[in-house]
Nucleic acid binder design. Structure first.
Lengths: 218, 218, 218, 218
DNA sequence: AATGAATGAGAATTCATTCAT
DNA sequence: GATGAATGAATTCTCATTCAT
């Protein structure tokens, strides 16, 4: 039988959770709509139907709140990548699935994509506090690790030749996709009337061929 | 023999140029160091040892000044790319040279690289005035066009198979490099102790092989 | 017996009122002394011993604050006019009383008079925001309406002949007084050593005679 | 036969006149269009195709320039009034003509009217330099003097009873017209759908009757 | 006389964060 | 915990006027 203070603690904890998610939801909406700079704590507090001061009980400040949204973004991405990772099929199929999942994420959660891609890059020099950066970097690492694991599995299955460093191969797989998304984001595809999907398909094919067939001289 | 007013005009023009470059130099330093948002016109004026108001005689405002720095960056890049484009050797050599020039620019002018890559991208929602954007977009196009021309030449020389749209091929060449630079910028290479140069070399080789050998199904 | 939060709410409300009036008092002093354009928010904040930012919690901005002072002026005027309107005596007596009240207001609250007379008139092209103008226009209308009501009453009592539009008659009553005040304001009375009070008395007499006796041809 | 330096002086004088009028024309246009506050010396210089600095050779500054435009306005008004003053007909006809001329000026030169009416009134507290004010006051006096002279003539002709001070009578004639224009300017006529011309006609009739018939007690 | 570059004070407003209640 | 009032630093851009040339 629970004691009274346990129950109280429990309720408090629930309330805390509720607050956290309420604030997060509000912050997400506001940041997505207006961008980091144009969002004010007041906007967020209003959207959350809370007082501005209270947010500081739950998050250190605007930066931290922004960091939390970044984190959300990473979790959303990781969920998609992990799902793709355990797809049925060969290692190559799973690698393709992971690539497609990334593209899917890019297309369907553009705000999250932007946020996690540019979290503190660019000409703004908006810098997240150090410990927040670290958490995000760790999450970022986990995303890459999905690809690394697959390549490792591919080597184990002898579907991929074992030459070269594992991380290096990871980067080489990731780079063209990232680059393509980056190019698309800048609008060049539209400018030149290119078919994004078709290019991506070709890119994937090229990539897989390269990975499989490659034998390097290093 | 020059007339008096010619000399005066000449001197005035010189002084104007001197001012322009003085302001630009100051702005460059400040923007590079602090980023767009954290730079103030006052900072720039101070660094240039000029009154803040005077800057407005030469540039419309902070945006325009920033735009001028972006433009500088593009010109620097274009100079490098154009030099590489006319390298001695086969089309493939020249393509490689252009890629290397881009990497060189990335490594040696990281601030310019950032500025032109993220000039109004991402989560910031700070947008340059339209007419400035247009100029920059045009410069950006000129950079891409270097690659396009080389691929076109490669096809003419039958070094590259003619399948696929020209711009599409351009993007496929560009994407992996861009992606790799992007990855490097985020620091993953250092994190995993990878050798940037080596990876790039492999990347280039892969790319060239892929371009040459490819025959697509579309 | 009051509950705790009632008391708290009450106190907060009092404090809010106190702030509002503190700001208003400061603004009034500053605006009266320096005029709208030469007054700065900083002046007002300083006079109110408040931080500049706080004023924006209570008023939208400088315009709104100025609008509030205009409103005060109208309320002061309306109070005087309404009091005069219900004077003992005939309609003509009351009309005279209203006119005198206006003159009294002009003489005793010259700053308010200026502010409401020139609230956005003339060569300045500084215009108050629309919704503020509307409120002021409504108040302005209420002042005129006092005269209109009296003329209406005069017609009902057959003290004033019913020819002519009611508003037209209102204007004809108002114009000479307004004109006289305007002339006085420009200093001509002093220039020519005239007796303002005497002239006004004559003006009123003339006006009343005209109103009573008139029979127009239109 | 003119000496050389006389000719030079003459030419210089002509050029000076030309400059003055060029500047004045530009200033008039700009002030009329944008109002005093929103006009900049640069605007005026540009419109005059002159350098800003040069204006200061001809006028002390912005205020003085504005004062010169006011003066122009007075001269325009005085011209109209003087023309009306010497109309054929009785004193009363001429008085009416002068009133109508004033209204005509109000309607056809609204910018001048505003400028001379509000030259340094209102909530802005923009104050003209003293010596400029004095000139303008003198011109203003000349306008009033036209009415005064007519009333004087009327008394001489026994068309107007001689009771009361001459200036006082002038004011009493002027006030209703001024007031009516002022009311019209504020837009009340339109608000209430009144016929400005008709009201003015009635006003004039009333005024003339009052002047003629009056016998005061003072 | 003429130029126009140079000055520099100035002003409204915003907003993350704090803290008394 | 919760409130929201209070803070106050910070920033871009304008413009009358001056003055070296």
């Amino acid at each position: 039988m629970k004691k009274l203070n346990e129950r109280i603690a429990e309720r408090k904890d629930n309330e805390r959770q509720e607050r956290l998610s309420r604030i997060l939801t509000a912050a997400r909406k506001v940041f997505f709509q207006k961008g980091y700079l144009n969002s004010t704590m007041r906007d967020i507090a209003l959207k959350a139907a809370l007082s501005p001061g209270l947010i500081y009980h739950y998050y250190e400040g605007k930066d931290a709140l922004y960091g939390a949204i970044c984190e959300e973004g990473f979790h959303a991405l990781l969920t998609e990548l992990h799902r793709a990772e355990i797809t049925e099929g060969s290692v190559m199929d799973r690698l393709t699935a992971v690539g497609k999942a990334y593209v899917h994420f890019y297309e369907n959660s553009p705000e999250y994509f932007d946020i996690i891609s540019f979290r503190d890059l660019g000409y703004k020099k908006v810098e997240l506090p150090h410990h927040i950066r670290q958490r995000l970097d760790k999450l970022s690492y986990q995303a890459l690790d999905v690809i690394r694991r697959l390549i490792e599995a591919g080597i184990a299955e002898k579907a991929i030749p074992p030459d070269g460093d594992l991380w290096e191969m990871t980067m080489m797989v990731w780079a063209p996709i990232e680059g393509m998304l980056f190019i698309h984001k800048r609008g060049y595809m539209d400018t030149f009337g290119l078919d994004f999907e078709k290019i991506l398909k070709n890119e994937f094919r090229l990539l897989l061929t390269a990975i499989k067939g490659e034998s390097r001289a290093d």
